[in-house]
């Protein structure tokens, strides 16, 4: 199967000469359709840079980024933008939403930017907002929503345009632990129930633990990788069933 995202010897250097900072040193990473991958590492390890390069927000110094077989580094700004619009959904730590637009309009924004008819865009945005549990808050402005709710809008926005991959950069970095847990669970749900591909960058092990695979980054290199063995569903529900029984 062709991976959604693959990088080849991806390198990013900031600055020149003696002050040069090697943010990434030859990253080779492939993300398969439907995978939920978390990138972890200490701050400054280059994990955000990796996400930015994959998202076409920044240009690599060398190496390639392939999105569904298309080399991102060969496209010009407008082409990258269009690709971002159609194939990627972003969720960031801060400033996720445009403050002057309400939840519905924010969620519909990428589709409208892509030239979709507003009615259709709003219809889809509404469906996704309802799915992430924001049905009753469609017309609220970001300032009227809690941090967790704002992040949900951002997730709905990322999902609504039916992208190939969702790129989340520390989506819980600005949230309390309860809201973080909820966002993490939502991401898990998006992956297992709705079959989306997710690339998550985080430094929070608790959030990363929801992923199918964790990639560890250190000093701009992948140092380790862990694939989670999910217990099969039956076993899980058996355990839960037993616990409930005891509780009663």
């Amino acid at each position: 199967m062709q991976p959604i995202v693959s990088t080849q010897d991806l390198t990013k250097v900031y600055g020149h000469g003696a002050t040069a900072v090697h943010a990434l040193r030859g990253i080779n990473l492939a993300i398969q359709p439907g995978e939920f991958v978390a990138v972890m590492g200490p701050s400054g390890c280059g994990k955000s840079t990796l996400l930015h390069l994959i998202g076409g927000l920044d240009r690599p110094t060398s190496g390639k980024v392939m999105i569904e077989g298309e080399d991102l580094t060969r496209l010009n700004d407008d082409q990258v933008t269009a690709l971002r619009r159609r194939k990627m959904g972003f969720v960031f730590q801060f400033f996720n939403l445009i403050p002057v637009l309400n939840a519905l309009e924010n969620a519909a924004l990428p589709m409208i930017l892509d030239g979709m008819r507003p009615n259709e865009a709003y219809q889809r945005a509404r469906e996704w907002l309802e799915r992430v549990g924001l049905g009753p808050r469609l017309t609220h402005r970001p300032s009227e929503l809690s941090g967790g709710e704002q992040q949900r809008v951002a997730i709905a926005r990322a999902l609504a345009s039916e992208p190939s991959i969702i790129l989340a950069d520390e989506p819980t970095g600005n949230l309390d632990s309860r809201a973080s847990e909820e966002i993490a669970m939502l991401l898990r749900q998006i992956s297992s129930e709705w079959g989306r591909t997710i690339l998550l960058v985080t430094h929070d092990p608790r959030i990363a633990a929801y992923a199918d695979r964790i990639v560890f980054l250190k000093d701009g290199q992948i140092v380790d990788e862990t694939i989670m063995e999910s217990r099969n569903g039956d076993e899980v529900s058996a355990v839960v069933g037993k616990m409930k029984e005891i509780g009663d």
Binding site: P205, R206, A209, Y210, A211, T226, S230, R231
Partner: peptide, 9 residues
């Protein structure tokens, strides 16, 4: 992490 993943699930 495996354990954490199990508990999270």
């Amino acid at each position: 992490f495996q354990e954490l993943h199990r508990l999270s699930t």
